[in-house]
């Protein structure tokens, strides 16, 4: 009986919080809503340390926080969400920790695919992985491809997970792809060395941008970084020219709806300024 009472009150509390959140979202929607929000998910290890959790539990909590954030973004009507999950520089960490992250990733993907969870599919979220995926182990690569294929038809929100990603690597990769494409085009015209002749511009800015990993989404409106740091850490450097950079002192697993709310309010304050800047470019 007691248990039932607790569950009833918990359910009531949940319904109330949902209603309250919907009311806030409706109020917020009066102003402009960002199209693309990106997250630098920093502080999982420190979170685990602070709470005396087992190694790897911080990343688990971080995954849960991402799930909630995506749900809140969906409620707000944000169409693109990007999360910086694993940097190429993170491979410098101990092999055990890197392996733990890879295993967690595969485990969560399998949960999603085996309908134990499949929250993303239910919510109509398409998942895309960006980055140098060649650096991942074969099981991780296979799992990633499966998940992308499974959610390819979803269209409510595009969740881009930057894994084995750095912005400088993205730029170099885009240049490589552009050069290879230009060369292939010239070989089709049977003039393989025409590119070397003269000093005319061959590679255009638009060509490079087309081959970026992040070409799947528009440039972000907001980049949110947790754990009180104020750097981009080689994330979306190219795309963040006219983007509100917001830092929170909270560690990533402790991020909440209120943080997202504050970020959107800040974005609304500077909306016309950023629009003017975009037009200038």
């Amino acid at each position: 009986m007691e248990k039932d009472g607790i569950s009833k009150s918990a359910r009531l509390l949940w319904k109330l919080s949902c209603f309250f959140r919907k009311f806030i979202v409706s109020t917020l929607s009066v102003g402009p809503i960002p199209t693309h929000v990106a997250f630098i998910m920093d502080g999982n290890r420190r979170y685990a340390k602070q709470r005396n959790l087992k190694e790897g539990e911080g990343h688990n909590a971080g995954y849960l926080a991402l799930k909630f954030m995506v749900y809140y973004c969906l409620e707000l009507g944000i169409k693109h969400v990007t999360a910086y999950a694993f940097s190429i520089d993170n491979f410098k960490r101990s092999p055990e920790e890197v392996q733990r992250i890879m295993d967690l990733m595969v485990e969560k993907i399998e949960e999603e695919l085996s309908e134990v969870d499949n929250t993303y599919s239910k919510m109509g979220i398409r998942i895309h992985f960006s980055g140098n995926l060649e650096l991942l182990s074969q099981p991780t690569k296979d799992a990633v491809k499966k998940l992308m294929a499974a959610t390819a038809k979803n269209s409510k929100v595009l969740l881009t997970i930057c894994f084995a990603y750095t912005s400088t690597n993205e730029i170099v990769h885009a240049i490589e792809q552009t050069c290879q494409q230009k060369l292939a085009d010239q070989m089709e015209l049977e003039e393989p060395n025409s590119a070397g002749k003269g000093n005319h511009v061959v590679v255009k800015l638009a060509d490079i941008e087309k081959h970026m990993y992040m070409a799947v989404a528009p440039d972000p409106d907001i980049i949110i970084r947790t754990s009180g740091e104020s750097r981009l850490s080689n994330f979306l450097l190219w795309q963040s020219a006219n983007c509100s950079l917001i830092c929170f002192s909270q560690l990533w697993p402790a991020i909440s709806f209120w943080h997202l709310l504050w970020a959107v309010l800040k974005f609304q304050r500077n909306y016309f300024y950023f629009e003017k800047k975009k037009k200038q470019i």
Partner: peptide, 9 residues
Amino acid sequence: ARCHLGFPA
């Protein structure tokens, strides 16, 4: 606003 305004990436 806190934004690098296109400083060389």
